[in-house]
Simulated assay, not measured.
Amino acid sequence: MVKVKRFVVVKHFQNDPKPSDLQLVEEELPDLQNGEFLVQAEYLSVDPYMRVYTQRYPIGITMIGSQVAKIIESKNTEFPVGERIIGYLGWRTHSIINPYSSEYDFLELKPKLLPDIKDLPPSLHLGILGITGNSAYFGLLDICKPKQGEVLVVSGAGGAVGSHVGQIGKILGLTVIGITDSDEKCKWLVEELGFDYAIDYKNEDVELRQTELTAILIMYSSLALVGGEISTIVIYQMKNYGRIAACGSIASYNADLSSLPKSTILQPQFVFNRLKMEGFLISDWYDRWHESVQKNLQWIHEGKLLYRETITKGFENMFDAFVGMLQGKNIGKALVQA
């Protein structure tokens, strides 16, 4: 018998997630049936969406999330031992999968075999070659529709999606401003990733810096991937026909939604500067998933797209990695190596 460890949601998160909201349990898995295969987790992703999506499910579920796992036993010739899969299996060390069942479907995504990316680490399928990279690629290209010479402002620029989308902006000939939360991340964005400017919102006046950069750059139009309070500041600096892709709002995920502060009125800015803002879910592009993965892989091989992973070792440390990500302690993609 194979034993599985998994984190069970015993209380819905309220404000900051607490260790007592989850319980680590150990159970025995049954024998494989025909058509099934058994996987062991190698890398597990921790992402902002988990904080809000968990509230949609009943108490007692396995904590949600995606993982790269290796097939260690199989009674399905299409999924042989030794291959890797990616799937939304949740926070668990082992899983028995029936590929014809909907048990592990999440947003219409089924577990699937990973393509060979040769000497690159398989963990990239959870980041730059997965949902993270696809969010950056389609959010910028399809929603913002950038034109060479425009200005791109990215909040959360030190994280997985933000650092990625800023680099795509540079590939496309944009001037890129990243907003993040530490001097270390600012240096990484500018000195390694090629961002033109970086603003440390915890130690700098974002509005003043934005005003200064607006004067320097003469922004005729601008693009933004934004969330939280920073978005209001950015929106009030945008020029005519600016476009905004809203892919999350991590700054408010731990807040009490019944007592959020009233926002600054934005309608005049949208009307007189003819701005557009569109929220999106990556599930909108499932039919074009391969396009993004192949393009991002090409840019990696060409040296145009760099990545950084903050890896926490040990499955038992999933919760700490999750909370650390929500607090911005990661640089680039946050992962757990089981």
Rank of each mutant, 00 (worst) to 15 (best):
L114N: 05
I199L: 12
I199Y: 09
I250A: 12
T232N: 07
Q14A: 08
L281I: 15
G65Y: 08
L306P: 09
I250Q: 06
Y137G: 10
G328W: 07
D47L: 12
I218N: 12
C186L: 11
G139A: 05
L152V: 10
G169S: 09
P48Y: 06
V234S: 04
E192H: 15
V10E: 10
S95K: 00
F13N: 05
A136N: 13
K329N: 10
P115T: 12
V165L: 09
A246H: 06
D200Q: 12
P58M: 05
E192P: 11
H164F: 15
P268N: 07
G130W: 11
L193F: 15
L152K: 07
K276W: 04
E73Q: 11
R6G: 00
P122N: 09
E103M: 07
E192G: 09
I143N: 02
Y220F: 04
K187C: 05
K112F: 08
D31T: 09
I177H: 08
F319H: 10
E83T: 02
I72V: 13
G139E: 01
Y57W: 12
T264Y: 10
F280D: 07
D47T: 11
M1G: 12
F79V: 02
S292I: 14
T54W: 05
Q298R: 15
L225V: 10
L126C: 08
R274D: 03
K70L: 00
E309K: 11
R84Q: 02
D181S: 15
K329F: 02
K304I: 10
Q167C: 12
R6A: 01
K276D: 01
E207Q: 13
G166I: 08
F270Y: 14
P80D: 00
